[in-house]
Design a protein around this nucleic acid. Sequence first.
DNA 1: TGGCCAAGTCAACACCTGTTGACCTAGGCT
DNA 2: AGCCTAGGTCAACAGGTGTTGACTTGGCCA
Lengths: 184, 184
Amino acid sequence: MRRSGDQTKAAILTAARERFAADGYERATIRAIAADAATDPALVMRHFGNKEKLFAAAADFDLHLPDLSTLPTEELGTTLVDHFLRRWEEDDTLQALLRAAVTNEAAADRMREIFTSQLATAAAGLADQAELRAGLVASQTLGLGLCRYVLILGPVAEMPRATVLAWLGPTVQRYLTAADPLAG
Amino acid sequence: MRRSGDQTKAAILTAARERFAADGYERATIRAIAADAATDPALVMRHFGNKEKLFAAAADFDLHLPDLSTLPTEELGTTLVDHFLRRWEEDDTLQALLRAAVTNEAAADRMREIFTSQLATAAAGLADQAELRAGLVASQTLGLGLCRYVLILGPVAEMPRATVLAWLGPTVQRYLTAADPLAG
DNA sequence: TGGCCAAGTCAACACCTGTTGACCTAGGCT
DNA sequence: AGCCTAGGTCAACAGGTGTTGACTTGGCCA
């Protein structure tokens, strides 16, 4: 029996996400991805054109942020941190994106779009200076993802979920809703 | 006139730091580094042995954290954030280290040592759970460096220094000195 | 002056990369 | 049956990589 085109394409996509997440853009080779998907490098090219487009397809990502305006104000920060943790864990995509973004301009562009536009849109309506607040939240949540899932810094990686929420929740909360500390 | 061995060695080291910082470990090639240092790839090998050792030499780094116990308690956070900003800006080393650490295990190891041991040592004496607090501070400061200097997220990269200090200072301060929010 | 050694040059190696094009083959269609 | 096409295989390409070894050259010392 032979696989359908869509089946192989999906297998390639999954393998690509795993490789990009584990190795970054340049160390993830088409040959390795093809081998993981039990297929031939040439088929990868036929399905996705070239390595850049394969990455673009594998790293398609949306934060799927909840509507923050319907939440009780005091739970904002914790809810958001919890959401980020789940987004990191349920998928290899964010890890692939971050590992690649550090050396690949296309990946960096996508990160900018995600952590600037998407976050700023969600932050709008809570307080003024939505973009600045989105940037602050990005700095803390990306730092968490970097330390916990990419660099695997002992204390951060081993921290129980509840501890992360208890410490970072208030930080994100403040970034989103507190008054500008420089005003006045 | 011919350069001394030490002069070329130093030129190579500088070029290597810049290339590793700009391109990451795999995209920074010995040939490019040699060209930047106006020398020959073979000389790079003679001076440093191989690429791994060259990176190790180029990414030699110490946070040089101030003694936190002598500081007024309420300035702890701001002082530390300011110190990190300066450490990122005065040198390409931290950027080289972070860009490489994402795909290179040796670089990741060094990052772990720096942002776990060095920070935990400085945090000891301020409160209990020094390692946990070091991890929290690492997540915020590395996130800041990542967003501001590596990914260059608009809002974070353009934020004036004073704004960074005003927002992140209190966060770091809390991570270092506040009581465990889960206790009791 | 002649010799010696550090410093620099050059060409090649073995290997790996993305990518291409020619080829084969299973299996549903008329 | 026989064809046609989607799916798969294979070998090769051009280019770039870290690394090596043999060679040349400049400048100091005896």
